[in-house]
Amino acid sequence: MEWWDIVTRTISAEFSDIPDLDEAVRVSTRLLIAALLGGMLGYERELRRKAAGLRTHMLVALGAALFVLVPLQAGVPKEDISRVMQGIVTGVGFLGAGTILKGNSIEDVQGLTTAAGIWMTAAIGVAAGLGHEATAVLSTLLALLVLLLMPPLERYAVRRAARKHREMRRH
């Protein structure tokens, strides 16, 4: 008996939901991709010293992937996974709401971007868990572009508006 057969039998005997090495690789890959992509978004948030950072984003992506992956493994039809996804969206909405802080005025609201990032991270985890790894990667890259490129653009817009406001007050 070859080592490959021993490994395959051991996996089959010990892990009934992962019957063979191919399934083990498939499950591991999906979960690992979800965690890594969530980590990319979390790392950006961590660098900006936001409340939800690396670990939070990794766990949200990993959890979302697991929530859709397990029913697929159990043979639940893909059409019925939509109810699972509705639960994820609702649950992550509550998690994100916990990051939002409202001050005394309408302009004094903090945490919206972090909440949206957590929501996006869950969506990326769902995509990875369903086996849509390319979509998950593309979505992560687009989210990173938003998080990295928009703050300088927003600062420019604020400075420009302030400059226009000062010019209007002078005339």
Rank of each mutant, 00 (worst) to 15 (best):
I106W: 14
G87F: 08
V89T: 12
V89D: 07
V70P: 01
V60P: 11
V89C: 06
K50T: 07
G111A: 12
G63E: 08
M85E: 14
T121D: 00
G87H: 08
K50Q: 15
T121K: 10
T113Q: 12
I88L: 06
G63M: 00
L54R: 01
R48Y: 02
K78M: 03
T99G: 12
T121H: 11
M120E: 04
R83F: 09
G98R: 11
G93D: 05
L72R: 07
E107R: 15
E107P: 01
Q86K: 04
A116L: 06
A65R: 00
A64L: 04
R55V: 14
M120L: 15
I88M: 10
T113D: 13
Q73F: 01
W119T: 12
T90N: 13
G103E: 00
V126K: 02
L69F: 05
G103K: 12
A97H: 07
A97L: 10
R45E: 11
L101G: 08
G125Q: 06
A122Y: 03
A97S: 14
R55K: 15
P77Q: 00
Q73Y: 01
D80G: 01
K78T: 08
Q73I: 11
M120G: 07
T56W: 00
D108L: 11
A65D: 10
L69Q: 11
L95M: 14
K102W: 10
T113I: 09
A52Y: 03
G125T: 07
A52H: 05
T121S: 14
R83I: 11
T114E: 12
A128T: 05
S82M: 10
D80K: 08
G96Y: 06
A122W: 02
V84D: 05
V89R: 01
E107D: 15
R49Q: 13
A74W: 01
A52L: 04
G93A: 10
Q73G: 14
A74D: 09
V68G: 10
L112N: 09
I100F: 13
I88E: 08
W119G: 11
S105M: 10
V92D: 13
L95V: 13
G96Q: 10
L72K: 06
G63S: 14
I106P: 06
V70R: 01
G96M: 09
P71A: 03
K102V: 15
N104Y: 09
A122V: 04
Q86Y: 03
R49V: 05
G125M: 07
L112K: 09
K50A: 03
M58E: 00
T114N: 00
A97F: 05
A127G: 05
I88C: 11
V126A: 05
F94E: 09
K50M: 13
A74E: 11
V126W: 01
L101C: 10
R45A: 13
G125D: 11
V109W: 10
Q110E: 15
S105I: 09
P77M: 00
T90I: 14
G125I: 07
A52Q: 04
V126P: 02
E79M: 05
F94V: 09
L54N: 01
A116F: 04
I124S: 14
V109Q: 13
A64S: 15
A127H: 02
E46M: 03
V109H: 12
G93C: 08
